[in-house]
Nucleic acid binder design. Sequence first.
DNA 1: GGTGCGTGATGAAACGTTTCAGGCGAAGAT
DNA 2: ATCTTCGCCTGAAACGTTTCATCACGCACC
Lengths: 341, 341
Amino acid sequence: MAASIKEVAQRAGVSLGTVSNVLNRPDIVSPQTRKRVQEAIEELGFVRNDSARQLRAGRSRTVAIVVLDVSNPFFTDVVRGAESIVEGAGGMVVVCNSGGDAAREHRHLDVLEEQRVQGILVTPVSDGKQPRLDRIVTRGIPVVLVDRGAGLANQCSVAVDDVLGGRIAAEHLAERGHRRIAFVGGPMALRQVTDRRLGAEAALSEQGLPPPLVVETPMLSVSAGRQAADEIVTLPSTRRPTAIFCANDLVALGVLQALTAHGLAVPDDIALVGYDDIEFAAGAAVPLSSVRQPREQLGRTAAQLLLEESTDPDRHEHRHVVFQPELAVRQSSETKRRRAR
Amino acid sequence: MAASIKEVAQRAGVSLGTVSNVLNRPDIVSPQTRKRVQEAIEELGFVRNDSARQLRAGRSRTVAIVVLDVSNPFFTDVVRGAESIVEGAGGMVVVCNSGGDAAREHRHLDVLEEQRVQGILVTPVSDGKQPRLDRIVTRGIPVVLVDRGAGLANQCSVAVDDVLGGRIAAEHLAERGHRRIAFVGGPMALRQVTDRRLGAEAALSEQGLPPPLVVETPMLSVSAGRQAADEIVTLPSTRRPTAIFCANDLVALGVLQALTAHGLAVPDDIALVGYDDIEFAAGAAVPLSSVRQPREQLGRTAAQLLLEESTDPDRHEHRHVVFQPELAVRQSSETKRRRAR
DNA sequence: GGTGCGTGATGAAACGTTTCAGGCGAAGAT
DNA sequence: ATCTTCGCCTGAAACGTTTCATCACGCACC
C-alpha cells in the first residue's frame, strides 16, 4: 500500500541510495536524475517512513512538551512560545497533558522515551528529586524544566520568580491600605503555590502586617475559586478580608464570580489580585489585577535551551533562567479613592 | 548508550526472540526465564525503541489531534475527551496546533503522515474538498473530522448542529422581546460561524423579525469581540441592537467587557448570548448565556470512531454523528422583568 | 598512454524490533 | 517402545531508511 524508496528507485530506474540522496542531499545528484526521481515520487505518492529514518539515523525532529493542564491558558501560551522556536528550526512540537496526575505524566514520559524524541519540555507534577527525568537525561534526551525552580545540575530550567510575584502582589495590596488579606490557592504541594504564598507572607511581615488568612484549594480551577469564596463570605465582616490574593487567575475568576453572586462588590468590598494575567483576566467584567508572567517567552526560552543542548550536547552548559514577574494593575484592586471620578 | 534487545538477551542468556516475547506476550514464556529477562531489562535500563517496533510492526499507538486554536478552551475540552478514550485503549494522544493557518496545518499533516500515526482527528482550517486528507485516508490512516459538517464519504465526522444552535439562541432572544438583534463573529469563511448566523437569521425571519445586524470579526477572540462592541456602541440608540448573539464565547466575553467599559449594562441595556459555554462563560461577572456544546463528548465520540475504524477497517462504515446543542440561560440574557426581585 | 581526479551513481551493511517456521525435550497416548 | 502432542525456546528474515566504501566514467595533465 505505502510505496517505499525501493519502488521509487525502480520506477525512476536508479538505485535505492540515489533516491535517498535526492531526499536528503539533492545538491549532490545530477539535475536530470533528480528530476526523474522526483517525478517517480510524485507519481507513486511516496511519503518517507519516519520510523525507518529515525531508526537508522537515531535522530528525531520532534520536541515534546508535557504540561500540567492543557485547559489552563497559561500553559497554552507557553506552548505557543515553544512552537514558534521549534518550528522555526524545522521541528515539530507535540503537546502531552499530564493533567496534574503523576501516573499520566509517567506514562507520557515512557512513551516519549520509547519514541526517542529530540527533547522534552516538562512542568513536572511533583517537585524535588526526579529520578524518572534523570534517567531520561542520562539516556541522552535533553530535558528542560518549565516553570520549576532551578533544579538539579543535569538539566536546564526556565521559571519565573514566584516568591517575587507573591511579594509584589502583597505589597500592592498593603500599599492600597489593606490589612486583612487572604491567600487562596492550592494544593500546597505545588511549588508555584507555596512560593507565591511565601512571597506574600514575607512582604506582609516586613510591613508589620499580620499574616494572610490562607484558604487552601484542592486545585487551581475556577470552580475551586468559587468554593473558596463561598467559605470566605461566611466570615463575620470584622474578620472578613478586605483583599484576596489568588494563586492563579482561574481561581481569582472563580472568587470574583462567587463574591459578586453574594452581593459583595469588587474592589469596593473586597479587592482582588490574580496571577498569570491570562487573557480572560483583562476581559473579566471587573478587569482583574494580576501578576503577569512572560508566558510565551517562557516557552521560547525553554525551547531555545533545549535545541541548544540538543545540537551541541558537549559544549552545552546547563542554565537556569529566571524571569521577573510584574503586576498588571486593573480595576479589581483599585482603591475607592482612586476610582472616584 | 541505549541498550538494545540484543544486549538484554545476551545478559539474560537467552535468545533475542525470547526477550521480544517477554515484552509482548509474557504469558508464553516460562516464569523463570521471564524473571531472568526482566532482571536484565532492569539492570540495563532497557527501553524499547519505538521506531524499530513501529517499522517492523507497521502499527503505531499514537493518535494525533490537530486543533484550530490550542488557546481556545473549546478545543482543550475536546482534547480531554479524546484523551480519555485513547488512553483507555492504551494509546497516546498528541496535540498539534494549526492556529488557523493552512500552511501549518499542512506541515503537521505531513509529519503525521511520515510518522504513520494510528489516526488523525482534525478540525481543518478550510472547508470543502480536502485532497490532502483524502490522500492520508487512501494511505490507510483513518481520519475523523471534528466539528465539521458531515463531509465526504471517506471519513467519519462528529459535529454539533450549528444551524440549530444559532436558531435556539435567536429564538431565545426573540422570546425575551428583543427585536433589534446583532450577530457578531467571523471570519465568515468558517463554517461554524456562517451556520450559526444562518440559524439565527432563519429563526428571526420565521418570527417576522428583521434580519440581524451582522458585525464580522477577523477572528474569534476576546480582542476581536472588544473591537466589534466598540463599533456597536457608536450607533445611535434608536438603531443600536438590544441584544447581541456572538459566534463564540471568546467574542462574547470581549463584547461584554467593552460594553461595560462604555457604561452599557448587560443585560439591561443589551442582552448577550455566546456560544460554546466554556468555563469562563459561567464565571464571567455577568454570567453569560451560551449555547452549550458537548465538548468532551465530541472528543470522545471522535476518538471512538477513529479507534473503531483503526482496529477493523474492513467492517467499518463511516458515520457522521451530529450532536444537538442546548442553551444555557444565565444572567446576561435575562430580561429585566424576570430579574426583578 | 598511463596517472590522477572529480562527479555521480551503486550496493551492501546497519539500525532494533517483531514474527514465524522450526527444533528440542518431556509428557501423554497407543 | 514408538508416535503425538505440547511447552518453551531459537534463529533468521523482514521492515524502510541512511550512510559509506566503492566503482565507472570522462577529462585534464605530464
